[in-house]
Simulated scan of single mutants.
Amino acid sequence: MIPLQVDIASILLNGLQQGAIYALLGLGLTIILGTMEFLNLAHGALYLVGAYVGLLVFRETTLTNGLLYSFGVTTIGFDGGFLAALVVVPIVGFGIGLLMERFVAEPFYDRPETDQLLVTFGLALIVEEIIKNVIGGNTFQSIGPQTIFGFNVSQPVALPVVGLFPSWRLFIIVIALVIIAVTWLAIERTDFGLVVQAGTRDSEMVRLLGIKINRSYSLVFALGAALAAFAGLIGASIQTLSPQIGTDRALLPAFLTIVVGGAGSVRGAIAGGMLLGVIVSAMTQTYSQWAQIVLYLFVALMLIVRPEGLFGSGEVGE
């Protein structure tokens, strides 16, 4: 029988790994929702794009169906390694975010929320279908590297109390927490971050004070997109890839994270993501068939007991 302390430590580590991905997703979504009051259902599509861009940058991939395969293309990808993917994926996500804000979000700022939901959900479906038709609907294996920064991450590492733990998953925890910390510092310690924080609390007052918050909207949207794409890259390194992952692995967890943490709250996105990650980890290692049920029950209970979330302060933008 495995000692209780080992179980708890393993649950916490796995929870941190999954929670870090949730926190990245929730962080990107909450700064967009809080600052711009824009409901972006295409957030999962950005995760999906990040996963597939990471796949193509990291390795050569063999195709067995799809539009490219019908044209005689059987292998795609640059085989550039995971370090290249770590650089390229956030840049691609940032660029896509800029385009989305300019051509998708901006025309709908003053439109009803239902219009925002429909156009972004439609965009998510379009992205999914493009990937499915061009690259194919096959499932690809995870894209974790063998080495990173000269260290072998393919073998487990011995940790105190826990014992053997996959070294790559440990690296994921570290790099995700670093990105989260950098994002938090950028929002808490820079002028741009002050505008974002003020916008999440009262965007109309920010405008009345003479601050041209619209100039920050593109950067906010692009930053949120880059975080989602980066989450897609590290998520794809431990899980299989398919065109459907944007919804079940990204969009729903992102919204659950900000429901628990509080819409528009940076601290809430981080705390909510980590909390949900630990819950999923605990249930997966004990009663895996109940993991999703318990997760949704917990979120429902949060809505009843504290509808504004752990760090929320009422409706965003009030």
Rank of each mutant, 00 (worst) to 15 (best):
L33T: 14
I279W: 00
L16T: 01
L39C: 10
G34S: 09
G235C: 10
Q197I: 05
T190H: 07
F192D: 02
A271C: 04
A85W: 06
S167H: 04
T35S: 15
A9Y: 07
I173S: 12
E106L: 04
G44F: 01
S288N: 13
E129Y: 11
I148T: 08
T139E: 11
D191Q: 01
E188L: 11
G136K: 02
I32G: 01
K132G: 11
V294W: 03
L164A: 14
V266W: 02
I270S: 06
Q18R: 07
I279L: 02
S10A: 14
T200K: 01
L25N: 06
V259M: 09
I130A: 00
R111N: 10
E128K: 15
L98E: 07
I32E: 01
Y69W: 14
F230L: 14
V87E: 10
L303P: 09
L194N: 06
V162H: 00
E129P: 05
A9C: 10
G150A: 11
V305N: 00
L310G: 01
S216F: 03
R59E: 12
Y296K: 05
A176T: 15
F221A: 09
V162Q: 04
I293R: 03
V260P: 04
Y47C: 09
L303C: 12
F151E: 10
R249K: 11
S70R: 13
P243Y: 04
I21K: 06
V178T: 11
V53D: 03
N138A: 13
G224A: 06
T286A: 02
G50L: 06
N65H: 10
V49I: 15
I238C: 05
L177W: 12
N152K: 02
L99I: 15
S142A: 04
M100C: 13
L297F: 14
T183R: 01
G28Q: 07
G34Q: 03
L117E: 02
T200E: 08
N152A: 12
A231I: 00
A124H: 03
I238W: 04
L16E: 08
S70T: 15
L310S: 04
A250F: 07
G163M: 12
I143F: 01
P253Y: 14
G80P: 08
V260K: 07
G193F: 01
G34A: 03
Y287D: 06
L241Y: 09
E113F: 14
G77Y: 01
S218I: 13
Q141S: 15
T75R: 12
I213T: 11
A271E: 06
